[in-house]
Design a protein around this nucleic acid. Structure first.
Length: 569
RNA sequence: UGGGCCGUCGACUAAUGGUAGGUCAAGUGCCUUUGGAGCACUUUGUCUAGGUUCGAAUCCUAGCGGCCCAGCCA
């Protein structure tokens, strides 16, 4: 396992350190991760999870998992299950599991208390009217005509809202704050709305449901949360968060806002991810192209890689976007150290070793992981007919191309030095097979005379090869910022038509015939691959997690001249 | 155009009035039975203009730029 990346400090840790120093909460650090169960968790949530759990762990504190389930029309138990699975998979364990709906009774009592204190009132205005009365960014709002009802009447009306006497949308409970506040959140925010909807946990007990602003801070307070982290867009809500707590005189949790994660070529909005799923642009929430935890897990990412990434990107209040290369770096770093190596040929080209005995099969030693001696070695069968990668042969090699070409000698990894003697082509001038001779004295890959070859290529014995499907992924979107669209179009116009390439004719070394689902390998010289649940015994399916860094691709891109054709490729 | 928040290498992030540092990316070299990995080196930055100060990324003022807020979503 990769050692933990050092966590660079941040302003939230500084706040906690200061609170610890001044003994503000008697040395307690209590956080919470509060997802709404209305979708799958994504890499952006992973950042929040690492923060919430990581900071609490660091200071011997506690973290609750709390489902923010105040809107029954969007929330489902499928999501609460996937969220728990994902948090655990990332390597975190919550101290207590709560639901905002656990607090519905208490929240109702507190609402009554606020009504009695003249701090809340039942409003009969419709949604449209409320919007109208709210004013605009530059103009103050106006008081609702119902704002000054008596406490008795408010109590009666609120009670009857709860009993179900009124239809959806006909009334709300509002906090009585200030319709002229420059902060729109303080212009008598709605605390309760009428919603005759079945709730995934409370069933039909309630037909009024608290709004986020009224539920979240009070839930934090009930759990004695000391540091309540959320994203920047809630900054404007903090005065309201504090207002409820002050009016109620309950435990003062503190809300601290940090910047949401943005990743290039990636969308991190639950609404848009849901759209991708529903419109079938991807094959479900766990499609390996999705930035969901379940998607990147299926893609082959490790929890350690994700945690190291989250701990390395820092936490601040600046709106920025992290390059996808950063995330990829951390999977490569982790997998390089732990993934066993294997040989796989994605686009096979037949190679015949003419001077190798027809039916001979040799078992060659291959190192499982050069980064980890304890991983040991395995046997790989070698015979007269092999597959190599089409990319590893060029009839007319460009400058700096070191791989196989007519007359050239290369090394077959853990095998022999071979020299290309001739090629067989079809009528379309395509190379069908390559003929080589091998040097029997080079078994294992070294020449007794000390001669060197410039290149080592991977291979699979044709007679022993396992047929496999390999899925190659590119970014889901073609634009760094998928939200950047022409007028009248939406983000789906930036979908990358080549985000998934299915290779059905891949040839794998025999040890890969029946991998465990989720097993991760490095296919030598190609990248990291992960066995997909679609695998069948003897016919595996692999997802490419990430390619290896490819220096040759860079060289070729920089000087795209093919001397064989005499013009830029 | 009301309010809130934010501007440091290409990206992300440190420096808490005292040497602008780290990671990724990019580049160069070494090494290599993965053109992988590793190692070494290199390039590029404090939004602008004033001010305070022995000294400013940091404090002040004024600009400029970006993000968020007018759901009975969270």
């Amino acid at each position: 396992m990769t050692e933990q990346a050092p966590i660079t400090s941040n302003f939230i840790r500084e706040i906690i350190l200061e609170d610890l120093k001044t003994n503000k909460y008697q040395g307690r650090v209590q956080t919470r991760f509060p997802p709404e169960p209305n979708g799958y968790l994504h890499i952006g949530h992973a950042k929040a999870i690492c923060l919430d759990f990581g900071l609490a762990d660091e200071f011997k504190g506690h973290t609750n998992l709390r489902f923010d389930d105040t809107n029954p029309s969007k929330e489902e138990t499928e999501y609460v299950e996937s969220i728990q699975q994902d948090v655990k998979w990332l390597g975190f364990q919550w101290d207590s599991l709560f639901y905002a709906s656990d607090y519905f009774d208490q929240l109702y009592e507190w609402a009554v208390q606020l009504i009695k204190a003249g701090k809340a009132y039942v409003d009969d205005l419709s949604a449209d009217q409320i919007r109208e009365y709210r004013g605009t960014l530059t103009q103050p709002g106006r008081n609702s005509p119902h704002r000054d009802r008596s406490v008795e009447q408010n109590l009666d009306l609120f009670e009857r809202m709860k009993r179900g006497e009124f239809p959806d949308g006909s009334r709300t409970l509002r906090a009585k704050i200030d319709m002229a506040s420059p902060n729109l959140n303080l212009r008598d925010p709605v605390m309760y709305r009428i919603l005759h909807a079945h709730h995934h946990r409370t069933g039909d007990k309630w037909c009024i449901y608290p709004m986020y602003d009224y539920a979240h801070g009070q839930s934090d307070s009930l759990e004695k949360v000391t540091h309540s982290m959320c994203t920047l867009e809630f900054e404007d809500h903090r005065p309201l968060y504090n207002w409820f707590i002050e009016q109620l005189g309950i435990f003062p949790s503190r809300q601290i806002e940090f910047d949401r994660l943005n990743l290039t070529y990636t969308l991190l909005s639950k609404r848009k991810l849901l759209q991708l799923v529903e419109e079938r642009h991807v094959n479900g929430w766990d499609d390996p192209r999705m930035p969901t935890i379940s998607g990147i897990r299926r893609r082959g990412y490790t929890p350690e890689a994700i945690r190291n990434f989250c701990n390395s990107i820092g936490v601040s209040k600046t709106n920025g976007s992290i390059e996808l290369a950063m995330l990829e770096h951390f999977v490569r770093e982790d997998l390089n150290k732990r993934a066993p190596r294997a040989m796989a040929v994605l686009r096979p080209l037949k190679v015949v070793i003419d001077n190798y005995p027809e039916h001979k099969v040799d078992e060659l030693d291959a190192i499982n992981n050069p980064e980890d001696a304890s991983a040991g070695i395995r046997k790989v069968p070698f015979s007269r007919v092999l597959y190599i990668e089409q990319d590893d042969f060029r009839e007319n090699p460009p400058k700096q191309y070191y791989r196989l070409s007519p007359g050239r000698e290369v090394r077959l990894r853990y095998g022999y030095l071979i020299t290309c003697t001739s090629v067989v082509k079809n009528e379309k001038d395509e190379v069908l097979e390559v003929h080589c001779s091998y040097d029997p004295a080079t078994r294992g890959g070294n020449a007794p005379d000390g001669r060197k070859v410039k290149s080592t290529i991977h291979w699979v014995s044709a007679a022993h090869a396992v047929d496999a499907e390999v899925r190659i992924y590119e970014t889901l979107f073609t634009k760094e910022d998928p939200n950047q669209v022409e007028l009248g179009k939406d983000f789906t116009s930036n979908l990358n038509p080549n985000s998934l390439e299915i290779i059905r004719e891949a040839k794998l070394e025999p040890s890969l015939a029946t991998p465990q689902v989720g097993a991760r390998y490095q296919f030598e010289r190609l990248g990291y691959f992960c066995a997909d649940p679609d695998s069948k015994p003897g016919h595996p399916v692999f997802n490419r997690t990430v390619a290896l860094k490819d220096t040759w691709a860079k060289i070729e891109k920089k000087a795209p001249v093919d001397p064989g054709r005499g013009r830029p490729a």
